[in-house]
Structure formats: structure tokens, C-alpha cells
Amino acid sequence: MDATAPARIDAPSPPARPRDWSAAWKVVLPLALFVLVLWGWETYVVANEVPPYILPAPSVIWATLLKDWPVLSVSLLTTLKTTFLGLILAVTGGVALAVLLSLSRLVEYSLYPYAVVLQVTPVVAISPLLLIYLPQEAAVLTCAWLVAFFPVLSNTTLGLQSVDRNLLELFDLYGATRPKGWPAFVGRFVTRLKALWYLRRPAALPYFLAGLKIAGGLSLIGAVVAEIAAGSAGAGSGLAYRIIESQYRLNIPRLFAALALLSLTGVVIFLALSALSHLLLRRWHESALGRER
């Protein structure tokens, strides 16, 4: 037994070693750069007395953010609501359709091309149409859903299909129990469902999470695009609408403040989804494992 006996079987934590500074640098360096750029920006604006309607200093943007918080926070909430609702709908729809596609070739062949068409048609081009046919809130939500839907669908479909062939054969061998008194195709369907739950579902998880990460960002983009389209029609209340409005009124500091909030929202969504992915995959998937040295 010794030849194959494990050296590190119940050692989840690596042995003590010199502190790993690369992790710290990963945080410190971008932060330092950020501060440096802000400082350069501030100095430049102050030194050259650039008027705020051309380029507001970071300190002015910060002040505007605080001053306009009552307006901006309402807009932020609106955009967040659209983004998350769109994302949730995209995940439910994408996963449900992917499961359907994996269960039936018939559904796959008839539906998948349309999913692709929906994806490759630029949403900006659809949003004016949606605004005609749907109430504004529904139109914005549809936009967010449309762009976020496809990455979830295509990644989950890919994941459901990327199961080890041999494992599927094992299922054939061990899992093919035919319910007594039922026709053979019922047995095959039950086996397929079992394979879906025990094999394809866990195998697809990393792919789904990668799709979710993309969809999170895209859902925000979809919401913003639709808000801009709606905003140019003179209605709306989201952050993107505030940006358009501030542009018309030459309220550039508020435009920057709204932009900063949008950017922050995107970052938070990305970090949250990355954390979720790490949490779910850390025990077994390569992507979540640190390189051991």
C-alpha cells in the first residue's frame, strides 16, 4: 500500500511558509495607482483652473455625490432593481432552456438558432422598438434580460454536455433500471433525468458560474443601454438617465458622480459573483485551486 500511500491527504492547509506577498501586492498596487491618478487629476485641474463643466476635480465629484445623494440614490436603486431582476430572469430562463435542450434534441434543433439570433442582434438596435411596444419599465427590464440571457444559456448548455463519456457509460451500466410495466422509452427518460441530476448538473456548475459572471456585467450594460434609449425619449429615472440628463444640463460633476456609481455597481457585481464561484468550486475545481509551489 505504501507505494501509493498519500503524503498530503488530510492536510487542507499548506504547511507554514514565508508570507506570500504577491497576494498583498495584487491589492496594494492597483490602489496605489488609483490614488496616484486621482492626485494627478486633482493637481492638473487646480493648477490649470479647468472649469468644472469641462473637467471637474475628483474632490468636486465627491462633493456632488454627497450633495446629490437623495437623487442619485433613487436612480441607483432603480438601475440595481432592473439589473438584478434582468439577471434573475436570465438565469432562470437560460438554465431552464439549457436543461430542455440537453434533454431533447428536437427542442435543441428548433430553438437554439433563435437564441443565437437574439444574441447577435445588438440590443441597442432593439431597445427603441421595445420602448414602443412595452411600458418603459418592462422594456428596460427586457433589454437587461436579453443581453444576460445568452451567456447563461450557452455556457450552461456547454457544461451540461461536457461530462466524461466514461462516466455516462457507467450510468448506462449502473443506472439503467427500467420501471416495471412501463415502455422502454420511459426507462430511458428516467435514466436521462438521473444522469442530468447526478452527473450533468455538477459537471455544468463551473461553466454556469463562468456564464453568470459574464451575465452579471452584461445585465448592467443592458439596463444602461435601455435607460439611455428611454432617456433620450424623455422619460426615466435610472442612473443612465441621470447621465443623459446631466449632459443636457451641462451638470458635468453630477454626470461623473453617476458614472462612478455605475462603475462601482459593476465592480461589486463582479466581485460578488467571483466570490460565489470560488465558494462553490473551492473543494474540487481547478479554477478555484491555488498553484502549489
Partner: peptide, 30 residues
Amino acid sequence: RGEIGFVFQEPTLMPWANVADNVWLPLRLR
């Protein structure tokens, strides 16, 4: 089929499941 055990050239384990759960699989399917 229930009387046959099959071992492939590759271990063909489920990477997301621990050793016990991997061994459990044929029984679980039953």
C-alpha cells in the same frame, strides 16, 4: 448489469464528489 463491475483505463471519478460519494454512486443509482 447489476452483477457486473466495470473499471476503465482512467479512474473516471466525479471530481466534485469525495471518495465515499464516488464509491456510493452505483448504489445511489439503485
